[in-house]
């Protein structure tokens, strides 16, 4: 018998033991046997590895990762949706305001232009704001400037150089350069009450903003005694513009709301009302400039005449 299993086994085992006892430098040739052995074993080990490498927990982990990404995407879309809803609300409010401004002066062909406020003058004693709209947009000196459609901010300055190609200066109603202002106290949304006249501007650089002190003019004539309007004036009532020195497009715009009432120091029988603008002209970020395109030719107002170009 050529092959004796028992003797061969003993011989092979002895060789292995001797090989183990050899120094590493003399047994390095065994590296040559490793590659054929791997070539023989690896083809079957790789599929087994892939087969059992499929771990249901790792699949769950992948699903969890996908879920996290989906939640993140949902949050981003929700944020975008909320931003769009906010934009829609803002635009709807703008349309409403613009339409409200037009309704106050029916029959006038008014052009409106909404523009952002670039800033205010560095001089704290004045309340002049700079708006990004100028001659190129058709802005003229003396044009009325409002915010949210009906809240009077001021007028475009008539000073030379105040209206430039792309910007213009606006004199706020709380600035001394705006001059006298006459108004009317609204007893309710539709009923005008006694007229009033600006007598003083109280400046404040704080968060409360400037206020206008107005003298209730009708008391001088005694009309209030007959109509009872003097007694009807209350804090919180709205004061609207009623001044022939202002353009017709500005009439009945809101000057502000009565925040307090005082007696005139030198004449206690006369009442002073302190009016605070609904919107602080120095803190507004966007305004609407209105001007007449055909000043003396009133006609039906077209809804297409206003708005942002």
């Amino acid at each position: 018998m050529l092959f004796n299993p028992r003797a061969s086994l003993i011989m092979a085992t002895t060789l292995v033991v001797l090989l183990l006892l050899l120094p590493p430098s003399l047994s390095r040739w065994t590296n040559a046997l490793a590659d054929p052995a791997k070539t023989l074993v690896y083809p079957i080990s790789a599929p087994m590895h892939h087969l059992l490498a499929f771990n249901p927990l790792s699949a769950v982990s992948t699903d969890a990762e996908a879920a996290r990404q989906a939640i993140s995407q949902r949050d981003q879309l929700l944020t975008q949706k909320l931003a769009l809803e906010r934009d829609i609300d803002r635009l709807q409010q703008m349309v409403k305001d613009l339409q409200g401004g037009i309704e106050l002066n029916p029959g006038l062909v008014v052009r409106q232009f909404t523009a952002p406020v670039l800033g205010r003058t560095s001089d704290l004693s004045s309340e002049i704001i700079t708006v990004r709209a100028g001659r190129r947009q058709g802005v003229e000196p003396g044009s009325v400037v409002v915010s949210r459609g009906v809240n009077l901010i001021g007028r475009v300055s008539s000073r030379e150089g105040a209206v430039r190609d792309r910007t213009c200066e606006v004199v706020a109603i709380t600035d001394k350069a705006a001059g006298l202002i006459n108004g009317v106290v609204m007893l309710d949304a539709q009923t005008p009450g006694p007229t009033c006249q600006l007598v003083e501007r109280r400046r404040s650089v704080g968060p409360s903003g400037s206020t206008l002190v107005m003298l209730v003019a009708d008391e001088l004539t005694g009309a209030d005694a007959m109509t009872g309007s003097f007694r009807q004036i209350e804090v919180g009532m709205t004061v609207r513009l009623q001044d022939d020195n202002w353009p017709r497009t500005a009439q009945r715009f809101v000057i502000g709301r009565i925040v307090s009432m005082e007696s005139k120091p030198d004449n206690p029988l006369r009442r002073l009302i302190v009016v605070k603008p609904e919107i602080d002209p120095t803190r507004v970020s966007e305004v609407t400039i209105r001007w007449l395109t055909e000043a003396e030719e009133p006609r039906a107002v077209s809804p297409t005449t206003g708005g942002r170009p």
Partner: peptide
């Protein structure tokens, strides 16, 4: 096959 499992799967 068993060697394949031993080499390939044991670590998993």
């Amino acid at each position: 096959i068993i060697l394949g499992i031993d080499v390939g799967v044991a670590t998993s």
